[in-house]
Amino acid sequence: MRALALLALMGLALAIAPGEVLPDFQLLDPKGNLITPKTMPKPAVIVFWASWCPVCRAEFPSLHEVAEKTKVPFFVISREPRDTKEVVLAYMKAYPRFVPLLASSADTPARVAERFRILGQPWTLVVDKEGKVVALFAGRAGKEALLDALLLAGAEVE
């Protein structure tokens, strides 16, 4: 158990940190629109996940509730190279408020996860209006902590 906690702390130390600007990426939304850190609406939430991840499956309903309540865009990026466009889009049918980001001719979700220094899933980032990371959750993000982070990011939260 201690080894797992130590690995999680080491991963957090390596990952993109609060205060850092989002690394550049070029992914497509389901309609084929190019999404980059400059073009994405903010504040926003970015969730790195994988279709086989049991923690992701358990967490997505509460994340979707927060997305519905706040109307903040939630961009979801599968860091699993085997999650094809078809797998991702089928999975996301249950979560219509999420915007899945897919491979483009210039980038892949797995390479984006590497640029963000994401080591596992789910990892959730809250981004403010300037494109800086306000909070990072490795593992399951609690609803109240996520709402607090969104307030810090400038989102209107009831």
Rank of each mutant, 00 (worst) to 15 (best):
residue 4 L to S: 13
residue 5 A to K: 14
residue 6 L to P: 09
residue 7 L to S: 10
residue 8 A to Y: 07
residue 9 L to I: 12
residue 9 L to Y: 11
residue 9 L to Q: 15
residue 10 M to G: 14
residue 11 G to Y: 09
residue 12 L to Q: 14
residue 13 A to W: 14
residue 13 A to R: 13
residue 13 A to E: 14
residue 14 L to R: 14
residue 15 A to I: 08
residue 18 P to V: 04
residue 20 E to L: 05
residue 20 E to K: 05
residue 22 L to V: 02
residue 22 L to S: 02
residue 24 D to I: 04
residue 24 D to Y: 10
residue 25 F to G: 02
residue 25 F to A: 02
residue 27 L to G: 03
residue 29 D to R: 07
residue 30 P to T: 05
residue 30 P to C: 02
residue 30 P to D: 02
residue 31 K to G: 11
residue 32 G to I: 05
residue 33 N to E: 14
residue 33 N to T: 12
residue 33 N to C: 09
residue 33 N to G: 10
residue 33 N to F: 11
residue 34 L to A: 14
residue 37 P to C: 05
residue 38 K to T: 15
residue 39 T to R: 09
residue 40 M to I: 08
residue 41 P to R: 12
residue 42 K to N: 12
residue 42 K to H: 12
residue 42 K to T: 14
residue 43 P to F: 02
residue 44 A to M: 03
residue 45 V to N: 00
residue 46 I to G: 05
residue 47 V to L: 12
residue 50 A to H: 07
residue 52 W to N: 07
residue 53 C to F: 07
residue 57 R to W: 07
residue 57 R to K: 14
residue 58 A to K: 13
residue 61 P to I: 00
residue 61 P to M: 00
residue 64 H to D: 01
residue 67 A to G: 01
residue 67 A to S: 04
residue 69 K to P: 01
residue 69 K to H: 08
residue 70 T to V: 00
residue 70 T to M: 00
residue 70 T to P: 00
residue 70 T to D: 00
residue 71 K to R: 15
residue 72 V to R: 00
residue 74 F to H: 00
residue 76 V to C: 12
residue 77 I to F: 07
residue 78 S to F: 04
residue 79 R to Y: 06
residue 80 E to R: 12
residue 80 E to W: 05
residue 82 R to M: 14
residue 82 R to K: 15
residue 83 D to G: 11
residue 83 D to L: 09
residue 85 K to A: 07
residue 86 E to K: 09
residue 87 V to I: 13
residue 91 Y to N: 08
residue 92 M to H: 11
residue 94 A to L: 14
residue 94 A to Q: 15
residue 94 A to K: 15
residue 95 Y to I: 00
residue 96 P to G: 05
residue 99 V to P: 03
residue 103 A to N: 10
residue 104 S to Y: 02
residue 106 A to F: 08
residue 107 D to W: 01
residue 110 A to E: 10
residue 110 A to W: 07
residue 111 R to Q: 11
residue 111 R to C: 01
residue 111 R to L: 10
residue 112 V to Q: 04
residue 112 V to P: 07
residue 115 R to Y: 02
residue 117 R to D: 01
residue 120 G to H: 03
residue 121 Q to V: 11
residue 122 P to V: 05
residue 125 L to H: 02
residue 125 L to T: 03
residue 127 V to R: 01
residue 128 D to I: 03
residue 131 G to M: 07
residue 131 G to L: 06
residue 133 V to P: 06
residue 136 L to Y: 10
residue 137 F to D: 04
residue 137 F to H: 07
residue 137 F to P: 03
residue 137 F to G: 06
residue 141 A to M: 01
residue 142 G to V: 05
residue 142 G to W: 04
residue 144 E to W: 04
residue 148 D to E: 15
residue 150 L to K: 08
residue 151 L to K: 15
residue 151 L to R: 15
residue 152 L to P: 13
residue 152 L to D: 15
residue 152 L to G: 15
residue 153 A to E: 09
residue 154 G to W: 11
residue 154 G to S: 12
residue 154 G to Y: 10
residue 155 A to V: 07
residue 155 A to Q: 06
residue 156 E to C: 07
residue 157 V to D: 02
